[in-house]
């Protein structure tokens, strides 16, 4: 039973994602200003994403000496495109743009493109800082991917389906976050990690003078930074159908609930970001493999037992 939205939504969805990303950037600027003790007015913050985009649009591009322009260009383009494709299975309300039977696996596959993308951008610049940044992201990916996959799978076990709209339907009575809180937290961590953002920003960190993005100028930087925010928004929005009941809720229509919940998840991420220090790779790898992975496996086991106990047979 394909419940996909009309095809026109494939064109509308990127616009929606960009709008939410815009709001997230503006909110981030406001929160950062407050944390620094120098409040930024709302009006300034609201215009800031556009101003920065403009600045990069008129800026001059840079080509590294003996750099690999093709790989770097491809890597940059892959980031936003992967984010859009991942969002294709996102139910806007109760229906997604593409209602794939293996939607969860699709989402997983698309966001893993970020690994290649960031590494290619880092490698193509022929720069020590970029190279270290690119490899940092691969190391980070090795860390977040396992807990992330177990979190996805836990939601799939709960719904006994890999179709995202089925996962939403299964939460009509009870949001999955109630029976799988560990998976939810692991998912949120991996959202920030896959977008190399906030505490997981080491691949483009200040210590590396911008890391994988250190040598990017003009539109190249714009595409990568936009892709990064789109990834964050797409992945944060995915937490809604997987754990927060999707479009289910009283009073409001389904699409409004999805929007409200997505903004709430993003607000939580943006708010937390300024309280948590940047996590270094040598710490993260150990933690994710030794603590987070077994925790999410245990969570999957608990949910499996609940499903069996409820007489899923």
């Amino acid at each position: 039973m394909n419940v996909a939205l009309p095809l026109g939504w494939a064109v509308l969805l990127p616009v929606l994602l960009l709008a939410v990303a815009w709001a997230a950037v503006a909110a981030d600027v406001v929160v950062a200003g407050r944390a620094a003790g120098r409040p930024v007015p709302w009006t300034t913050a609201a215009a800031l994403p556009g101003r920065e985009a403009l600045r990069l649009l008129v800026g001059q591009r840079r080509r590294a000496v003996a750099g690999d322009e093709l790989l770097r260009g491809v890597g940059g383009a892959v980031l936003p495109i992967a984010a859009l494709l991942a969002a294709a299975v996102l139910p806007l309300g109760l229906r997604p743009v593409a209602d794939l039977g293996v939607g969860i696996v699709w989402f997983n596959a698309m966001e893993v493109f970020a690994w290649a993308a960031v590494w290619l951008v880092g490698w193509g610049a022929n720069s020590t800082m970029s190279l270290i940044g690119g490899y940092r992201f691969v190391a980070q990916g090795l860390g977040w991917e396992l807990p992330h996959m177990f979190a996805l799978i836990t939601a799939a076990i709960g719904a006994q389906s890999l179709r995202v709209s089925d996962v939403v339907a299964a939460q009509q009575g009870l949001w999955f976050v109630v029976i799988m809180p560990v998976a939810f937290v692991a998912f949120l961590l991996s959202v920030a990690a896959m977008a190399f953002w906030g505490p997981f920003g080491a691949p483009v960190g200040r210590d590396l003078a911008g890391g994988a993005a250190a040598e990017l100028g003009g539109v190249d930087r714009l595409v990568v930074l936009t892709g990064r925010w789109l990834l964050l928004v797409a992945a944060a929005a995915m937490a809604v159908p997987l754990f927060l009941g999707g479009g289910h809720g009283p009073w409001l229509p389904a699409w409004a609930w999805v929007l409200v919940k997505t903004l709430a998840v993003l607000a939580a991420l943006v708010g937390l970001r300024h309280r948590i220090p940047t996590i270094r790779m040598e710490r993260w790898t150990e933690f994710s493999l030794v603590v987070l992975t077994p925790a999410t496996i245990a969570q999957a086991l608990v949910v499996t037992l609940v499903v069996l106990g409820e007489g899923g047979v």
Binding site: A32, R34, A35, A36, G37, R38, G198, P199, G205, R206
Partner: peptide, 15 residues
């Protein structure tokens, strides 16, 4: 503090 990703406290220290 800034290198540790604590931009806010870093800015306060600079202030």
């Amino acid at each position: 503090l800034a290198l540790s990703g604590w931009e806010g406290p870093a800015a306060r220290a600079r202030g």
